[in-house]
Deep mutational scan, measured.
Amino acid sequence: TLFEALYDYEARTEDDLSFHKGEKFQILNSSEGDWWEARSLTTGETGYIPSIYLAPV
């Protein structure tokens, strides 16, 4: 399942991933609670993103 960003997000740590509204992600690991490891389909970068900023596509 792909997810789309509902809002912009600016990374706060080196493990976080910055993204823009409308960016799409492949989720790599969603077992860490509210922060999911994801790969951006726009940039190819991976990192942790807040799941509350996402909606399934």
Results as ranks from 00 to 15, higher is better:
F19D: 00
K24D: 01
I52T: 13
S40I: 05
G33H: 12
E45V: 10
P50G: 06
G33F: 10
G47D: 01
Y7G: 07
T43V: 01
F19K: 00
L54R: 00
L17M: 15
L17S: 02
A38H: 01
I27A: 02
G33M: 12
W36E: 01
L6P: 01
T1F: 13
P50W: 15
L54Y: 01
T42L: 14
L17H: 03
T13N: 13
F19Y: 03
I52W: 15
Y7A: 12
I52C: 14
T13Y: 15
Y48A: 05
N29M: 07
A5W: 01
S18Q: 04
L54K: 01
R12T: 13
Y53T: 04
E4C: 09
T42I: 09
G47W: 05
G44M: 07
W36N: 01
E45M: 15
A11I: 02
G33K: 13
G22H: 06
S31R: 10
T13P: 05
L28R: 04
F3Q: 03
L41H: 05
T42K: 13
S30G: 10
K21D: 01
F19C: 06
P50C: 13
G22Y: 06
R39Y: 11
G44P: 00
D34M: 13
T13A: 11
I27W: 01
F19L: 07
I27R: 04
P50D: 07
L54E: 00
S30P: 08
S30E: 08
W35H: 07
Q26D: 07
T46A: 07
E10D: 10
L41S: 04
D15I: 14
E45S: 09
R39G: 01
L17F: 12
L6G: 02
P50E: 07
L41M: 12
D8I: 02
L6A: 05
A38W: 01
T46H: 08
S18A: 06
S40H: 06
E23K: 01
V57C: 08
E10G: 06
F19Q: 00
S40G: 02
F3L: 03
N29H: 07
E45C: 12
G33P: 15
P50Y: 14
A55S: 10
G33S: 13
A11E: 03
A5F: 01
E45N: 12
T42P: 01
L41A: 05
Y48T: 07
H20D: 06
W35G: 03
P56V: 09
I52G: 13
F19A: 06
E10Y: 10
T1V: 12
A5K: 00
V57K: 04
S18D: 04
K21A: 10
A5C: 02
G44N: 08
E32Q: 14
Q26M: 13
E10M: 12
Y48P: 02
G44L: 07
T43N: 06
F25M: 03
K21W: 04
Y7V: 12
I27H: 01
K24E: 04
L28P: 02
T1S: 11
D16H: 15
S18Y: 03
V57M: 08
N29L: 06
G22C: 05
L2N: 05
Y48V: 08
T42C: 10
L28N: 04
Y7I: 12
E23W: 08
A38D: 00
D16L: 11
T42E: 14
E4I: 15
Q26S: 08
Y9F: 09
Y48Q: 08
R39T: 10
T46C: 08
L6E: 03
T43G: 03
G22Q: 02
